[in-house]
Design a protein around this nucleic acid. Sequence first.
DNA 1: AGTTTGTCACCTAGGTGGCAAAGT
DNA 2: ACTTTGCCACCTAGGTGACAAACT
Lengths: 296, 296
Amino acid sequence: MAAFLSAGLGVLATSEPYTLTSSSWEPRLDSPFPSDPPTGAQVVAEPGKQGPKNPRVSSVTVQLEMKALWEEFNQLGTEMIVTKAGRRMFPTFQVKILGMDTLADYALLMDFVPLDDKRYRSGGRPGEAAGTAGGGARKSTPTCTLGYAFHSSAWLVAGRADPATPGRVHFHPDSPAKGAQWMRQIVSFDKLKLTNNLLDDNGHIILNSMHRYQPRFHVVFVDPRKDSERYAQENFKSFVFTETQFTAVTAYQNHRITQLKIASNPFAKGFRESDSDSWTVPPRALLSIPTRSHSG
Amino acid sequence: MAAFLSAGLGVLATSEPYTLTSSSWEPRLDSPFPSDPPTGAQVVAEPGKQGPKNPRVSSVTVQLEMKALWEEFNQLGTEMIVTKAGRRMFPTFQVKILGMDTLADYALLMDFVPLDDKRYRSGGRPGEAAGTAGGGARKSTPTCTLGYAFHSSAWLVAGRADPATPGRVHFHPDSPAKGAQWMRQIVSFDKLKLTNNLLDDNGHIILNSMHRYQPRFHVVFVDPRKDSERYAQENFKSFVFTETQFTAVTAYQNHRITQLKIASNPFAKGFRESDSDSWTVPPRALLSIPTRSHSG
DNA sequence: AGTTTGTCACCTAGGTGGCAAAGT
DNA sequence: ACTTTGCCACCTAGGTGACAAACT
């Protein structure tokens, strides 16, 4: 299926750690990680300088759904489980799209870029978190080990990142489709799964456990011209929502992340306490995840 | 989504009762309905004269999956439940496709045409089935009320067909896709649902209960030419498998149909008797229904 | 009397985190 | 000591025919 786009994908560099390309920022206090850019500042991501763009994509605007929930997770340091068989993300990455050419064909896809070149570990005891890290190449000073309880204590830099995994992308299953179709309702990436299996042959996204990642969202205009490869650079637009960054883990490290997942993910309802009034998330966070269908 | 094809759909006439356009046939004894053409004779349907065709579709060949199971149902007189919310078909219509241009785009769709202009009812007592039908406009003589037990007794003609329902079509959700993708594995129409709700707004197939229908399968080459509407007639090819014809019902009329559904549909396992050895269907009939996915 | 509707118990299919055990 | 794996109970989500009640 993805053959129609393969040429255009070369333009998405996925190997180097992601850095914000636009706007300045100041250190924030609510992140458990050093040197984090601020989040939640923009409703619609500013993709920064990407060169001249086809108006078919330059006018496209994207809105992150469940933004409040993402921010709630991000303040604790979002973790996403990776398994051999592949695990969905929660929250699910969902967007509302505006500004497409209703009659043009677009493909939507996601990929994940490393947020830094570090490997983390969940070690030590509270108090010695900042000082006793192993043979790490830690450069920046960890500014905060805030008031949340880790499974053991805190995130420590454990060294340089493991070799980069194959930089896979995930096409939304409905790709390609007309702009009108994409804009009709919320687009949900609920089929996307994360795995730590380097040999995965199910097409899942391969990530290294204990590493941090930034999801990216790409809108690609399917150029009908025969020499469309020549225009690949102008025919896509990328969006980054910093509040969706996360640490890949094989088991949750921060117990408050676990509790928030249980409180907000319908599939984890079995682990909720009987009284369902003590949620920290608003009820709308529990609304069912919209899906898109072609058959209508 | 279907906009790219709407012009081409006009060529599919769905209003008049379907009749076999090719080959001769003789009366058969295993059908509970009068004047039924033979079934199961051809592995691949012969669509008959459809005018000159684009080689992109003329070389396409289609093989019905679960053929043995379809025939088993057809010998009893297949019934399909229709509900207000929409009900899936069982068996599911599934095909294996050969002969497509691997690089060309195709859309696959189904529609349903009336098999005759009659309305049926499930009336009378055994023995008086053939003679005492109500004020029907019955023209042909019912030849067989074979050795199976109806809920009451037999299918009687109850009069002329109700006004034809809106002739909806169901696009396979993966449409459009490359020939290579369609041929990679079995294509399953398991998202298709039948309804008796004339006001249905879920895009389901609308049928009249107590009427007989012939499912049809259409392969449409998505012509990249700007004036593709001009070539609509040559760009599609239709296939009919007579063993898939059925009567739409709101509740099963033939108890042997019910039992065969229970025996062969995994979702009806709850109604099976404890010993699972007394099936009349081969174990392969119970294999899971393959689905196709774009995300790989 | 025949047909349709809505509810139900019982399934399939698959997404949760917990947890013990294994791995490193 | 920390991380990963496999299995589990418990969910969501939705596909079955049975059945009683309603409809016509």
